[in-house]
């Protein structure tokens, strides 16, 4: 059957269907595009809120009773290993308080020997010269995503063993 055999009504119906098809395709493209943009905005907002939360934590964590000095604005290093153990044992409580982050404290000036200050290093006779960083809290709900964003600030570290103050760096790595 040739094209010339179509009646005028059939041609108009075909045109209407074509127009309808285009409109539906445009609507689908529009909806997909809108949701993509919306999704991106939500992700950006989420990252911004995480950054905001981490910044607030950066300013306030040194005043947490669990790690702060008794009467001064500094971090008592003798409390860091016990706090790390406590945070691991009561992870549900600290997860609610500190969220999806890794918190590390580095001793940077005058520098000590490279190494993690864990129970073994802390109980060694060489302490505090045998290690230079403490991982006091770690909770990564998305281990597959790789490294998170890091923010840090210098802090004052107090060593009650020899009544000395050193300069440290508090680093917060937050996972999306």
């Amino acid at each position: 059957m040739g094209v010339s055999n179509y009646s005028k009504g059939q041609v108009e119906l075909n045109e209407t269907l074509l127009v309808l098809f285009f409109i539906v395709v445009i609507i689908i493209i529009g909806v997909v595009f809108y949701f993509k943009v919306f999704q991106e905005k939500v992700k950006e907002k989420g990252e911004e809120l995480s950054e905001q939360e981490a910044s607030v934590l950066l300013a306030s964590i040194t005043s947490m009773g669990e790690i702060s000095c008794s009467n001064e604005d500094c971090v008592d290093t003798s409390k860091l290993v016990p706090f790390g153990n406590l945070a691991r044992n009561k992870i549900d409580y600290y997860k609610g308080l500190l969220g999806n982050k890794k918190i590390t404290i580095y001793d940077i000036y005058p520098s000590a020997r490279e190494g993690l200050c864990d129970n073994r290093a802390y109980n060694s006779i060489e302490y505090p010269e045998n290690c230079n960083h403490w991982v006091i809290y770690e909770n990564n709900a998305y281990p597959g995503r790789g490294e998170g964003l890091k923010i840090s600030t210098p802090i004052s570290l107090y060593y009650p063993e020899n009544n000395e103050y050193k300069i440290g760096r508090l680093e917060i790595e937050f996972y999306g």
């Binding site: 911004e48 950054e51 905001q52 910044s55 950066l58 300013a59 040194t62 001064e72 604005d73 500094c74 000036y109 005058p110 923010i151 840090s152 600030t153 210098p154 802090i155 004052s156 570290l157 107090y158 000395e164 103050y165 050193k166 300069i167 440290g168």
Partner: peptide, 25 residues
């Protein structure tokens, strides 16, 4: 433009000064 980097630098400067004054060499 996010103001957090500036806010953090401000926290950083104040904390550094506090730590510096207490430092014993």
């Amino acid at each position: 433009i996010s103001s957090y980097p500036e806010l953090r630098t401000n926290i950083e400067v104040n904390n550094l000064l506090r730590a510096l004054v207490k430092l014993k060499i």
